[in-house]
Design a protein around this nucleic acid. Structure first.
Lengths: 139, 139
DNA sequence: ATGGGTGCAAAGGATTTGCAACATT
DNA sequence: AATGTTGCAAATCCTTTGCACCCAT
C-alpha cells in the first residue's frame, strides 16, 4: 500500500503532472484488486472528486499505460480493464461469475517458450479462463 | 493440412450445418497461419464465394468460437483476430511490425502458476509483446 | 499570460441485431 | 412447405477527438 505522497512522486518521476484527477485515478487503479474498467473508475471517483468526466478517465488511463505505470488487460475483448499490480502474475477469468483473479507465478515461466531467445520481450500476459473454486464447487 | 471433407465432417460433428460460406470460412481460418480479423476473412473470400457479407463472417466466426472449433485472440484489443491452430502455443506480437507469430511451448507451463489446482481451466493464452528477430536487428 | 488539463458534445469504428429474401432438405 | 441461413441496413456500444473553458505556474 503506497501513500498518496509516494504515488504523487511516482507520477512526477514519469513526467506526469499530478493533478487532482490524475492522482485520484492513479491511486484507485493501483490500490484496487478488482481490475476496473474506465466506467468503474469513473463511477467510483465521481462523488469523491465532485467534478470528473469519463473523457478524463479514458485519457488519463491511456496516459498511465503509455508511461508504463499500469497495464491494460485484454483478457476479454468485450470490455477493457486496467491493472495496477506491478508484480509478475497471471490472470484468471471465471466463465461463470466473471471475476478476474490474480495468480502468482514463477518468474522463469518464459523459459518454457521455445525459440524465445531470438526475440526481445517487453511484456508478457498469461490469461486463464475456466471456473474459479467457488463456481466449480457449485456445479 | 486437413482436407475439405475432413473439415466438413468436423463441422457436422460439432452440430453445425456445413453451408458453403461456413465451410469456406472454416477452411480459411484453420489453414491460415496469419491470425486473420473478420475483415481479412471477408476480403479473402469475397471473390471466391461471389456472394458474402461481413455480417455472415462475424456471425459464423462467433458460431465457431462458441463451438470451440477456433479461438478468438485478444492480444490487442484494438482489433480482434482469430486462430485456427489447435495446438498448445503462445502468441508473440511485434510492437514494431505488428506481426503475430505462433511459438511452441512446453505443455506443463501451467504448473508454474501457483494455486491453480483449485481452479478448473478451460483455456489458457500466453501473449508476448516486444520485438521480433527481424525488427530487433534493424534497431 | 501561457501552457497544460479538463470536460462537453460530437464523431468514429467495430460488432451486433432486426428482418426480409433465399436456399436446402 | 418448413426450417435454417444469408445479408442489407440500421442500431449499438465503447472509445477517441475537437474545441472552448479553466486552472496553475
Amino acid at each position: 500500500m503506497a501513500t498518496r505522497a509516494e504515488l504523487r512522486e511516482e507520477l512526477v518521476k514519469a513526467g506526469i503532472r499530478p493533478s487532482v484527477q490524475r492522482l485520484a485515478i492513479f491511486e484507485y487503479v493501483r490500490q484496487s484488486c478488482q481490475h476496473p474498467t474506465a466506467e468503474v473508475v469513473y463511477e467510483a471517483l465521481c462523488d469523491e472528486l465532485g467534478s470528473l468526466s469519463l473523457t478524463t478517465v479514458y485519457n488519463t488511463l491511456k496516459l498511465f499505460v503509455d508511461a508504463g505505470l499500469i497495464s491494460m488487460l485484454t483478457i476479454d475483448d468485450t470490455f477493457r480493464c486496467f491493472d495496477g499490480n506491478r508484480c509478475c502474475h497471471a490472470h484468471f477469468r471465471c466463465d461463470n461469475c466473471g471475476k478476474i483473479v490474480d495468480l502468482q507465478m514463477k518468474k522463469d515461466f518464459l523459459s518454457l517458450v521455445e525459440g524465445l531467445d531470438t526475440y526481445s520481450v517487453n511484456d508478457a500476459q498469461l490469461y486463464l479462463k475456466g471456473l474459479c473454486p467457488a463456481c466449480k464447487n457449485k456445479k
